[in-house]
């Protein structure tokens, strides 16, 4: 044990605690709370009932009043720790409440009704997760549809991105042809004009080709990512040309060379692009907001924003659906975070 403490508190050069060490740990611990805390708080809140969400100050964990079925009453009754007129304190079940007077019975002896002031009783609370926040939006709202749309957009866009970007990257890394630099320059150029600049004309193009208000209209403008072409091209440049020449000797067609040799060798780069693409497309907001007008086509992000923008925000549903929207990204974070950070550090793209 003392070894562990010694290891954890080991300082550079064996010197004692410098103020920078204190600052460093304060910064890191503070960051730990600040980076995960908000999302955790949202997740905890998403299991609270609307009544609990309205409480101020809020409790950390989701609570609900404990209930019990009492003989002679159809519905389960709420339990209260009650200060009885004779001075004793007991757990009682509330039958009804009239003004400031509460009528309670002993769950074990339900025949006798006791009347006390509501100030003399405290609800018995237990931790209960309001899972109906999660099930109801799927039953009563279009959230299942939004989820399907988001999954469709993410999967299809990622597949098309991988295919078209890798084909272009192959041509740009393994062929010498006139105009290659022009094509490269065009692609670099697009890094300068983000979607927010092209909003209006892109909308008119989408309308002109008949893709307005369709999921394909969301997908297609996003798939020719310049960053994807670059990432793959840089990686394919490291594949030795001798390999390709040898395959040509063996009478392999160009398509076979791309499919059988280059793609498998570029798998690590494809994996990075796939992860990026999934996160990008899952999180896209502005463009789907512009293109989609029918509610049944909304993606999760657009649907969430719409419900959160209503006059009477139903926070218990919004919070739960935000958690659902977060899940894929959290999974990516837990399992694939290493690849993304390596990809960013290596290329500077996001």
């Amino acid at each position: 044990m003392s070894n562990v403490v010694a290891f954890l508190t080991r300082r550079r050069g064996g010197r004692g605690w410098h103020w920078t060490d204190v600052f460093m740990w304060a910064w890191l611990i503070g960051a730990l709370v600040l980076m995960f805390g908000p999302a955790l708080w949202l997740a905890l809140s998403s299991f609270k009932t609307p009544a609990q969400l309205a409480e101020f100050p809020p409790t950390l964990l989701p609570y609900a009043t404990q209930q019990a079925t009492v003989e002679g009453y159809d519905k389960p009754l709420n339990l209260f720790t009650t200060k009885l007129p004779d001075g004793t304190t007991r757990v009682m079940a509330e039958v009804r409440r009239v003004g400031t007077v509460s009528q309670l019975v002993d769950p074990k002896a339900p025949s006798e009704i006791v009347k006390v002031n509501i100030a003399d009783r405290q609800p018995v609370r237990e931790i209960r997760f309001a899972t109906e926040n999660y099930t109801q939006p799927f039953e009563h709202f279009d959230f299942l549809q939004y989820l399907k749309n988001s999954v469709f957009v993410t999967v299809v866009a990622t597949l098309i991105t991988l295919l078209t970007n890798s084909m272009a990257a192959f041509a740009l890394s393994k062929y010498q042809f006139r105009g290659r630099n022009l094509v490269l320059l065009l692609i670099v150029g697009t890094l300068m004009v983000p979607l927010s600049v092209l909003l209006v004309p892109l909308y008119s193009v989408i309308s002109a080709v008949g893709l307005f208000d369709s999921l394909w209209g969301v997908i297609l403008p996003t798939v020719a990512t310049p960053t994807g072409v670059f990432l793959l091209r840089q990686y394919m440049l490291t594949i030795p040309d001798e390999l390709i020449d040898a395959a040509r000797m063996d009478n392999a067609s160009e398509w076979q060379i791309y499919w059988r040799i280059v793609l498998p060798l570029a798998a690590p780069a494809l994996a990075v692009l796939a992860i990026f693409s999934v996160v990008w497309r899952w999180n896209d907001f502005l463009w789907p907001l512009v293109v989609l007008s029918r509610k049944e086509l909304y993606t999760l992000q657009v649907g969430l924003n719409t419900y959160a923008g209503e006059l009477n925000v139903q926070w218990h549903f919004i919070l739960a659906m935000t958690v659902v929207t977060m899940i894929p990204v959290v999974l990516v974070f837990i399992f694939l975070q290493r690849y993304i950070t390596a990809g960013i550090a290596g290329t500077g793209l996001k």
Binding site: N165, F177, P201, V205
Partner: peptide, 28 residues
């Protein structure tokens, strides 16, 4: 020949790129 294959490999990406990035850029 090779140039034709390069064109083939570039075509899908550049078609999408042309319609949804380049054309809007000019139209803007």
């Amino acid at each position: 020949g090779t140039t034709g294959m390069a064109a083939f490999f570039l075509a899908p990406n550049m078609l999408i790129f042309g319609v949804f990035v380049l054309a809007p850029f000019v139209i803007n």
